[in-house]
Design a protein around this nucleic acid. Structure first.
Lengths: 175, 175
DNA sequence: TAAACCGATTGCTATTTGCAATCAGTTGCA
DNA sequence: TGCAACTGATTGCAAATAGCAATCGGTTTA
């Protein structure tokens, strides 16, 4: 369950942390989708993760120090997952990954608008986003009003494209 | 063997290309190690890839358009693998990945010096490196003398650290 | 009190991984 | 000419992992 350490190369060690098909998807949904609960991650996932794999990866990401888990005061059975600083600093990597995918892979328009906005915003936008995540997950102070967050900006971009592509359909705010 | 397309999300599609434990290792050895042949990749790999997995990943990376294969004129059985533009543009992602790993993971000093130099060089150094790779793999013209390349700079940094850590030992120029 | 929901867990099969041995052809050296 | 070393792979096999479907014991809501 823990890391292999095939070598001390930084790229290799990074791959051993999230070089699988689900870990980064979970972190993506937490970072960009604001998902904090098991069921949100399970049902909200576009890619359809299985519950045992989700449980396994959450456990693994906690062991690796990327996530923490706490009880949700509103529901005795609910657990709330938080990103650590280690996970929050993945934002620039996710931004680059999205930008690369947008150029070279058959991405769908509505799902890549976020990547496009994040790419255009550049490092200053990534920093602002990371500060928002620190506020949301680590409890650090913040003076950004909720309607002016980077996540809200990305979400608005997504909804604009989705509405244009299917004018009559209901907005899907999950993804 | 080809891509799954669980969703059209750029991050998901990128993961489906190199979200496994070997593909990026192979690309790393080609990009930073200058490896072009099957045996070089097989024997030079710090992490000890198996020959069947190497063969499988080379085939897969070719199908995905990240590599091309050509006959080596010096040896009738030798194949020479080249990076495509698609693979060369991974350099910024690898740089970020290395930088992230250097901060959060137990990297070894001699293997992370390259990541440190690449991080300090920033986007201008990455661009220069990508131009060198285009010259080497795609045959585009270049006026950088061989001793002033980014790869040579990174290699020199590695050897300086390796020599300092083991003054009497022979330099290992493979990794 | 029943239904829906909570974060998982279990049983199971299909796929993937990765080690070891091997392949047929090529090359370099004696 | 003969033979060992090397070329890019391929095969057989056992172990680990992936991932689907059903289910768990408990909580909340209607």
């Amino acid at each position: 369950m823990s890391i292999d350490r095939r070598s001390g190369c930084p790229i290799n060690l990074s791959l051993e942390v999230f070089g699988d098909r689900w870990s980064l998807i979970i972190l993506r949904d937490m970072i960009f989708g604001g998902k904090r609960h098991f069921r949100d991650l399970l049902n909200g996932s576009l890619e359809g993760i299985a519950s045992n794999i989700l449980a396994d990866r959450l456990k693994r990401l906690m062991e690796l120090g990327m996530l923490t888990r706490a009880n949700d005061p509103t529901h005795k059975q609910k657990a709330i997952y938080s990103l650590t600083e280690m996970a929050i600093t993945l934002v620039p990597i996710l931004a680059h990954l999205g930008a690369w995918g947008r150029v070279w892979l058959p991405v769908s328009e509505e799902l890549s608008i976020r990547a496009e906005l994040l790419e255009k915003g550049g490092p200053p936008m990534w920093e602002k986003f990371m500060d928002e995540l620190r506020h949301e997950h680590l409890g650090t102070p913040s003076d950004t009003p909720p309607e002016a967050t980077v996540r809200a900006t990305l979400q608005a971009g997504y909804e604009a494209v989705a509405a244009r592509k299917a004018p009559g359909a209901k907005c899907d705010s999950r993804a």
